[in-house]
């Protein structure tokens, strides 16, 4: 069985963001980077599937600059067999359709039985790439899954809907699924596995060989939203802060009366 998992490297969302000089994306200097949270579930599910079927080859793919290799190594340490880095310093400027086009171009004719992606990326969050890849490859896709099982060439999933309701959806492989938070418990790479991962194949391919589609949209501007709340911001030592808050709760709410 051949499995592909697509991951993205994103900044820590607690970072202090600045708008880049281009005015169309955030400044990437001085940020801490990590694996897109949704993709951790995708990697874990792909590794579990590999463990289940035994005879499987699991590729992790990531489009981005040199630095994304760090995140790819984590996926290798979690259990992926090989890495395909699609080298693109300008990946942040690409829109979801282009990212999907690159992935589909790579995956076409490679015979992947299952492709895993996250349901969305935390920074751009378009929730498009996975479904688009499947459409471009003309294979079935199931989005937002919180449960996954595979048996005899069929997958059964639970899709998460609003309010915690789930829909049971089945299909045959080849197929693509997009992974939602809580699908499984992503493993922490162990030290021996981190060491082993260093020896795994990690090839870089130039993006120009795979980018065959044009952008269908462009970013005009990136900006900070106006602060609307106008709520009170309290800072200082915890003791006086707690006293202040109690005072406010007494005045503004009935709960401490």
């Amino acid at each position: 069985m051949k499995i592909l998992v697509c991951i993205k490297q994103v900044p820590d969302m607690e970072s202090k963001f600045k708008v880049a000089a281009s005015g169309t994306w955030y400044d990437t200097a001085d940020l801490a980077w990590r694996m897109n949270e949704y993709d951790e579930y995708a990697v874990e599910q792909a590794v579990q599937l590999k463990e289940q079927v035994g005879d499987a080859d699991l590729t992790v793919l990531c489009i981005g600059g040199e630095q994304v290799k760090e995140t790819m190594k984590k996926a290798l340490a979690m259990g992926c067999d090989r890495g395909v880095h699609i080298a693109d310093d300008k990946s942040a400027e690409k829109e979801p359709y282009q990212i999907a086009g690159i992935i589909a171009e790579f995956a076409r004719d490679k015979g992947f039985d299952l492709i895993f992606t996250g349901m969305q990326s935390q920074d751009r969050g378009s929730a498009q790439v996975g479904v688009l890849v499947a459409e471009l490859l003309a294979i079935p896709s199931i989005s937002t899954i919180v449960q996954f099982t595979f048996a005899g060439g069929r997958i059964e999933t639970k899709r998460e809907l609003e309010g915690g309701v789930k829909a049971i959806v089945r299909t045959s492989t080849p197929a693509l699924v997009t992974c939602q938070l809580g699908l499984n418990t992503p493993r922490y790479p162990t030290l021996p596995n981190i060491m082993k991962a260093k020896k795994k194949e990690l090839v870089s391919l130039p993006v120009t060989d795979l980018l065959k589609v044009e952008a269908r949209q462009e970013t005009a501007k990136l900006f900070f939203p106006e602060k609307k709340g106008g709520g009170l911001v309290l800072e200082g030592d915890v003791g006086p802060l707690a006293d202040r808050l109690i005072q406010i709760l007494k005045e503004k709410t009935g709960v401490l009366a």
């Binding site: 969302m13 963001f17 955030y26 935390q122 970013t219 501007k221 990136l222 900006f223 900070f224 939203p225």
Partner: peptide, 9 residues
């Protein structure tokens, strides 16, 4: 963008 910290036109 980024958990609603930023916006994009």
């Amino acid at each position: 963008v980024c958990n609603a910290k930023l916006r994009r036109t």
